[in-house]
Amino acid sequence: MKIAILVEGKTEKAFKPILQEFLISHLQQRMPKLSFILHNGRIPKEEKLKRVVENSLNKDSYDAVIALTDVYTGKEIDFQDAADAKSKMRIWVGNNPNFYPHVAQHDFEAWLLPYWSTIQKLAKSNKSAPGGLPEQVNHGSSPSYRIKEIFEIGKCQRSYNKIRDASAILKNQDLMVSVNLCPEFKAFINTILSLCEVDLIP
């Protein structure tokens, strides 16, 4: 099984070894080959996304393509929420049974918020965690902004670096903690498990 995962940036790519380690514990001999394909800031839209997916399946011989986008992709407001993002990606790609759209709401850092005690240690700050479930954190300040803020007010005296710090936050963590608090993350994981024909995480 070969799965292409279209990702927006280097943060998500830094997530790959942690994801692989987690999946190996669930899949063992059924572990697929995962290729994270970087798209420098945002997943392609419309016809371009369709071309990327079809080329990955036909020319590059992937069995499945997963697109992983943030709801907030930068200055442009393309999506209202996770459901809207997945719906639009399906429409852009068309009726392709080997394409699976997934979304981090509101951005990838939502999946890091469950490890707030580790974030506090790295930032050298005791600032309390945002209230509510991780994927519901926004109110004008996205999860990535919340993490950036604690680093900048903390005694570490530096800003949040997506690549370095995302890896450090997730190092030696149990991803099930985040999976159980983040429905969109669980859906992403379960798509991979389903493709590999093993039991899903309830």
Rank of each mutant, 00 (worst) to 15 (best):
R158P: 02
Y160L: 07
N161A: 04
Q136Y: 02
R146H: 11
K148L: 10
E135F: 00
S159Y: 00
A129M: 09
Q157C: 08
S141G: 05
N138Y: 10
I150S: 08
R146M: 15
Y145W: 11
P143C: 14
I147L: 13
P130E: 12
P134K: 01
S142C: 05
C156K: 07
E152L: 09
S141Y: 10
P134H: 06
I150H: 03
S159V: 00
I150T: 12
G154Y: 11
N138V: 02
S142Q: 07
R146T: 12
P130K: 09
S141M: 08
G132T: 10
R158A: 03
P134N: 02
E135Q: 05
G131E: 12
S128A: 13
P134G: 02
Y160D: 02
R158F: 03
K155S: 14
V137M: 04
E152N: 12
P130V: 08
Q157M: 06
R158T: 04
P143V: 13
Y160A: 02
P134T: 00
H139M: 00
E152R: 14
S141A: 09
L133C: 00
K155H: 14
A129V: 10
K155M: 11
S144W: 11
Q157F: 05
S142H: 10
K148P: 05
R158V: 07
P143R: 10
V137E: 04
S144D: 15
R158M: 06
K155V: 05
H139C: 01
K162S: 05
P130G: 09
E135V: 00
E152C: 10
V137K: 03
P130T: 09
